[in-house]
Simulated scan of single mutants.
Amino acid sequence: MEVAGRGFARVSAVCLHHGPYTATITPAGGGYLDLATVYRNMVKELAALAEADVLQVMVKGTDWMPGSLLVDGALQAVGLTRGRLPARLYCPMIVAETGAKLSKSLIRSGEAALPAGAEPWMLDTRKWPGTVGEFADRLLNLAGLLLSHPRHFFRSYSAAELSRLMSLPAGSPAT
């Protein structure tokens, strides 16, 4: 990406189907470039890195792995070296019974219903039916299970399976 003051930005890329192309974006128009999510994540990560004495770890769903490459490129474009890029932890995705990502924003906005197997506490932890201590114990138990073997961590979980795993008392085996 080439930026010339506030006048324009020129973005060059390669489409796998159509080959190389360049789009020039100006305040008056010139092209459409949807960078909302990439830009938002770049700004969040750059702001987090402002605290030099703090190890920042970005926690993201596995669906964001490809997008992180774009964020890394943007962070390098503003002057960060690879050694200064934030550490990232990619967590398993929670999906509805259809396999679609459990979308908190769509459900909260009323554009989608809570899918079968999903519980209200999955969108708002204050709705956990037990105590805060019990929730913390169950969450730590779940984290221990997920981190016990890569086969548990590098996959997606249905909302119903997450609910089942969280219903197990702390310390119980979760086969």
Rank of each mutant, 00 (worst) to 15 (best):
A4D: 05
F8S: 08
R10M: 06
R10D: 07
V11L: 14
S12Q: 07
A13S: 15
C15N: 15
L16K: 05
L16P: 07
H18Y: 11
G19C: 13
G19S: 11
Y21R: 04
T22H: 06
T24I: 13
T24A: 14
I25P: 00
I25K: 03
T26Q: 11
G29M: 11
A36K: 10
T37Q: 09
Y39W: 09
N41I: 08
N41P: 06
E45F: 11
A47S: 07
A47Q: 07
L49E: 07
L49D: 07
E51V: 11
E51R: 13
A52Q: 05
V54S: 00
L55M: 04
V57C: 00
M58Q: 04
K60S: 11
K60D: 05
T62I: 03
M65P: 10
M65S: 04
G67N: 01
G67C: 02
S68T: 15
S68L: 02
L70P: 04
V71R: 02
D72I: 06
A74I: 01
Q76H: 10
Q76D: 01
Q76Y: 01
A77L: 13
V78Y: 12
V78K: 02
T81N: 01
G83L: 08
L85P: 01
Y90A: 05
M93S: 02
M93H: 04
I94G: 00
I94T: 02
V95A: 08
A96D: 12
G99C: 06
L102H: 04
L102M: 09
S103E: 04
K104H: 03
K104G: 05
K104W: 00
L106H: 02
S109F: 06
S109V: 07
G110Y: 09
A113T: 09
L114A: 03
L114Y: 03
G117K: 10
W121Y: 13
M122N: 00
D124N: 14
T125L: 04
T125Q: 01
R126C: 10
K127G: 13
K127D: 10
W128L: 14
P129Q: 04
P129N: 02
G130R: 12
G130F: 08
G130K: 08
G130E: 12
T131D: 07
E134L: 09
E134I: 11
F135E: 02
F135M: 15
D137M: 14
D137N: 15
D137T: 12
R138D: 12
R138T: 14
R138H: 12
R138L: 14
N141G: 13
A143W: 09
L145N: 03
L147R: 06
H149D: 12
H149G: 07
P150Y: 09
P150E: 11
R151Y: 04
H152G: 08
F153S: 01
F154K: 00
A159I: 11
S163T: 15
R164A: 13
L165H: 04
M166L: 15
M166F: 01
L168T: 10
L168P: 00
P169T: 09
P169E: 14
P173T: 15
P173Y: 10
T175D: 14
